[in-house]
Amino acid sequence: MSTKHQKSVQASGKNDSGQEVKLVHQEAYQGPLPHPDLLVKYEEIIPGSAERILSMAEKEQQHRHQLENEVIKKEIAQKGRGLNFGFTLALLIIVVGAYLLIIDKSLQGFSLILGSIAMIIAPFFFNKNNNQNK
């Protein structure tokens, strides 16, 4: 619900010394509500319409804020699920690595354990470097 309002006035003539003078006045307005001059005209045509337009703008803003809050809550929940899934997967890989160590498959067991630990630790180092560059 964005409105644009532009008004341009031009006048030309000659000044006292006979030089041609041109006066240009431009006005531009942009916003979620109509220009105040237009709002007055709406009110003159339909009494009470200015209040209805303001109420409509307030409801739209409230709706937009509610949607943004819902999106933020869903993003937080999604990140939490991702962290839980990653932790569970890393734990499972470490358990499998420990099992391989127990049954004398030491190379494969150490590989799984070290690989999963590296995947857990790596984002902290890369994230720290990205924050220092900003």
Results as ranks from 00 to 15, higher is better:
M119E: 05
N15Q: 08
Q108V: 06
L91D: 10
V40Y: 14
I53L: 15
N84K: 12
P47Y: 01
Q30A: 14
A50F: 03
S106F: 05
N15F: 10
Q62C: 00
S12Q: 15
V96H: 02
I102P: 00
S2W: 09
N84T: 10
E27Y: 15
I76C: 00
G13E: 08
E68K: 02
A57H: 08
A118P: 01
A28C: 02
K7H: 07
Q132E: 13
D37T: 12
Q61H: 04
E75G: 01
Q66V: 01
S8N: 14
I46S: 04
Q62L: 11
L83A: 13
V40L: 15
Y29Q: 02
V71A: 13
H35K: 11
P123K: 05
L54N: 15
H35T: 01
T88A: 15
Q30Y: 04
N69A: 11
K73G: 03
K105V: 02
S106W: 07
L89H: 03
G18V: 10
I117P: 01
N130A: 12
E75A: 08
L38G: 06
K74W: 05
K4H: 11
K4A: 07
G18C: 08
L39H: 02
Q66W: 03
G80F: 01
Q19V: 03
K41D: 13
L114T: 11
K22V: 09
I102N: 11
V24Y: 10
L92G: 13
F126A: 00
L89I: 02
D16R: 13
K74I: 04
M1S: 10
G109N: 04
E44G: 03
V24M: 11
G31S: 02
A11S: 12
L54F: 05
L107I: 11
P34C: 04
